[in-house]
Amino acid sequence: MNKLQWDVLVLDLDGTLLCSQGAVSDQNLHALDVVRDHGVEVVVATGRCFAESKHILETINHTGVCISAGGSQLTDHHGNVIARDGVDVSIVSEVTKKVVECGHRSLLLKDASTCDAQYVLVGDAALHEASTWWFDSHEISIVEVNTFEEDPWPEHTMRVGAVASESCLIPIANELKISLEGRAKMQHWSAVTCSEAIGSSTHLLEVFGSQVNKWTMLKRHLGDVIDNVRIAAIGDGLNDVEVLQEAGLSIVMENANEHVQQHADVLAGHHDEHGFAEAMRRWIIPVESKR
């Protein structure tokens, strides 16, 4: 029986549950187990696609739903798609042509349930070393093409973006911010690399459908059955902001930037110091379960 104040815990991965090396500590895993043992539904909500999250879901024994790609897709723990929100083909084309024109690869995340690869890479520029490491370490399947018109699945893009240094992506981001206003959602932030999960000089430029975010997909999953005040959320990134704004309790990690911390009801410890476990003990797990 759920003795807690919360019916749902929305859980981010990178920078929250995971340390800088992408691992889940024993302390964090134990705290997560206690929360689930008390009947709380844990909804994983991550910027990763499902294939990039699968090994983590297995590590934490997750059997619930997963909101992936920043809110673009809702799947069960096996990866079966329940709901999805893709990017309009015209937006994908526009962003891809700008990225390629500026000398970078355009990375098109696909709906793997309908496509034969997780990503289509557009352009002939060298792939950034962070992308190479990411695809290799997560065994991600890719298809490489020279132009957008060669994309085998143009109508099944969940996210379009690029990986490069911050200085290279800022001019592209500034231009796209103006041209895409009201038509798509754009994020520009530190990438997860082989050495750092946050704060790296390698950056991501990501473009989604205009209504895509973790909260919107969460409400599609929950409907009106659970009141917002019964939802707790914990995260650290820009793609967590909508969830943090709407949840009954918003817990933000110490390692989050100032903009994200502005949306915190309470501030947790650092993700490299078992901050998730500390947060569960302080604000989620009832006193009697600690004894």
Rank of each mutant, 00 (worst) to 15 (best):
V65G: 09
V65W: 03
V65E: 06
V65P: 08
V65M: 12
C66R: 10
C66Y: 04
C66K: 09
I67C: 11
S68G: 14
A69L: 08
A69K: 09
A69E: 12
G70I: 00
G70D: 09
G70L: 04
G70T: 03
G71I: 01
G71D: 08
G71V: 02
S72E: 06
Q73K: 15
Q73R: 15
L74H: 08
L74N: 11
L74T: 07
T75R: 13
T75Q: 14
T75E: 12
T75N: 14
T75Y: 09
D76F: 09
D76P: 07
H77V: 04
H77D: 14
H77G: 08
H77L: 05
H77I: 00
H78T: 13
H78P: 03
H78Q: 15
H78Y: 10
G79V: 04
G79E: 07
N80Q: 14
N80A: 12
N80C: 10
N80G: 11
V81F: 09
I82E: 07
I82M: 07
A83P: 04
A83Y: 13
A83C: 04
A83R: 14
R84Q: 15
R84W: 06
D85F: 00
D85M: 09
D85S: 13
G86L: 02
G86H: 01
D88V: 03
D88S: 11
D88P: 06
D88N: 12
D88A: 15
V89D: 14
V89S: 13
V89Q: 15
S90F: 03
S90V: 08
S90E: 14
S90G: 10
S90W: 08
S90A: 12
I91C: 06
I91A: 03
I91D: 05
V92K: 05
V92M: 02
V92C: 09
V92Y: 00
S93I: 00
S93C: 04
E94K: 12
E94D: 03
E94G: 04
V95N: 01
V95A: 02
T96G: 07
T96S: 15
T96L: 02
K98Q: 04
K98W: 00
K98L: 03
K98G: 00
K98Y: 01
V99D: 05
V99N: 06
V99G: 01
V99K: 03
V99A: 04
V100G: 05
E101W: 01
E101K: 09
E101A: 11
C102L: 03
C102I: 00
G103A: 07
G103P: 05
G103M: 00
G103I: 01
H104I: 01
H104L: 13
H104V: 01
H104N: 10
R105C: 04
R105V: 00
R105L: 02
S106V: 00
L107Y: 03
L107A: 02
L107E: 12
L108I: 04
L108Y: 02
L108G: 04
L108M: 10
L108C: 11
L108R: 04
L108K: 06
L109T: 05
K110S: 12
K110I: 02
K110C: 14
D111K: 03
D111N: 12
D111V: 03
D111W: 12
A112T: 05
A112D: 07
A112Y: 06
S113C: 10
S113Y: 07
S113N: 11
S113R: 13
S113Q: 11
S113M: 06
S113W: 07
C115S: 15
C115G: 11
C115L: 07
D116G: 15
D116L: 13
Q118W: 03
Q118N: 10
Q118Y: 06
Q118P: 00
